[in-house]
Design a protein around this nucleic acid. Structure first.
Lengths: 204, 204
DNA sequence: GTCTATATTCTGATAGAC
DNA sequence: GTCTATCAGAATATAGAC
């Protein structure tokens, strides 16, 4: 009978190589945009010929898929690494809005890949998609803790926070013009949906 | 001395062909997305071989450029063709928000091309860009008429209205889930920046 | 598991006949 | 002004030697 070692050095090495490949793909995406991610360029960065990548991923879309799953895991880690959520409801909302905003602006390519239709023809697998559902659930928990539950109110929230991010990225990718409006936006939102607590900013 | 006719039938025909080409490009973009616009496909629709297009446009980017300029002219026409702007400030804001929203949703490819970085490598010419400046000025006039002047308040407005459009297109391209929130968003905004008048919707 | 070589397909653009 | 023929380059993916 063959001995079963509790560490499989071969598959550990294999997994490390896969991570190297995905890392290289991220570097290309950050540098030149998602559309510039090609197998040749990834191969160049990891020191491989492009066809060799097929020993580790069955297709280019499988690489995008790994990136997509990673990105949604990272946003969870991102919030875990931040100062903990404040207990005051409006402070908690601002904490969520700023965390989301900073995450998006920190890596535009990542933010684009997370939202659908960024890469023509790419559809995440069920497994990768599950990570996005989990992360979205975590963000909804924060809103819930602040007393926001109605579906229409959640739609208001996504419009406001997503809008601030999109304007920032479209008009001033390296600035803070819309980030500086987050406290006002949160106050507006909190007033409208009836979140208690003092205003984050005093009225004009 | 050669007679100078006041109509140049040749250049009229030429201009008509240019319009036909741009129209075909729009049809491709609407049907299969901006990325699917290729010279061969445009040629197929207008009944020409792809290289013949170079008799009318110096490059593919020049076609995108014509589309870009057209789109920004169309949004001005769009508002001109609507019922006139109401005089009540909050009604005027809702009129602007709904007009912008409906214009964006009516043709997603057009909306994408109008905002930057939709087509890799495409930069509008100065002439085409001027149309966007003009249209943006018209929208700012509406806000001004409603008493909104501060730069920060304009940023708030673009975040809110752009955010509603982006969420609608990303999550439910053919629905009205975020459109139905526009009146609430306008009320929130109007309260925050101090636009007078009764609420569009009664409080919860 | 990585290589070379190649298949296949698509793109924007140019040359030159008519 | 439109055509055919073609270029030059890029892309993903496969076959098969080592």
């Amino acid at each position: 009978m063959t001995a079963l070692p509790n560490r499989d050095r071969r598959s550990e090495r294999r997994e490390a190589t896969r991570l190297e490949i995905v890392d290289a793909a991220w570097r290309v995406a950050r540098e030149d945009g998602l559309a510039a991610v090609t197998l040749r360029e990834i191969g160049r960065l990891v020191g491989m010929q492009a066809p060799s990548l097929y020993s580790h991923f069955p297709s280019k879309n499988a690489i995008y898929d790994a990136m997509f799953g990673q990105a949604w895991q990272q946003i969870v880690t991102w919030f875990d690494d931040r100062p903990p959520m404040p207990s005051a409801p409006r402070r908690a909302l601002l904490w969520l809005a700023e965390g989301f905003f900073d995450f998006a602006v920190a890596d535009v390519a990542r933010y684009q890949l997370m939202n659908r239709a960024a890469v023509p023809g790419f559809q995440p697998s069920e497994d990768a998609y599950a990570h996005s559902v989990a992360a979205y659930g975590r963000m909804r928990d924060v809103l819930r803790a602040a007393g926001v539950r109605r579906a229409a109110d959640l739609d208001l929230w996504t419009a406001i926070t997503g809008g601030a991010v999109d304007q920032q990225l479209a008009n001033e990718p390296d600035g803070t013009r819309w980030r500086r409006q987050l406290a006002r936006l949160v106050d507006m939102f909190a007033d409208e949906v009836g979140v208690a607590g003092p205003k984050l900013r005093r009225a004009r």
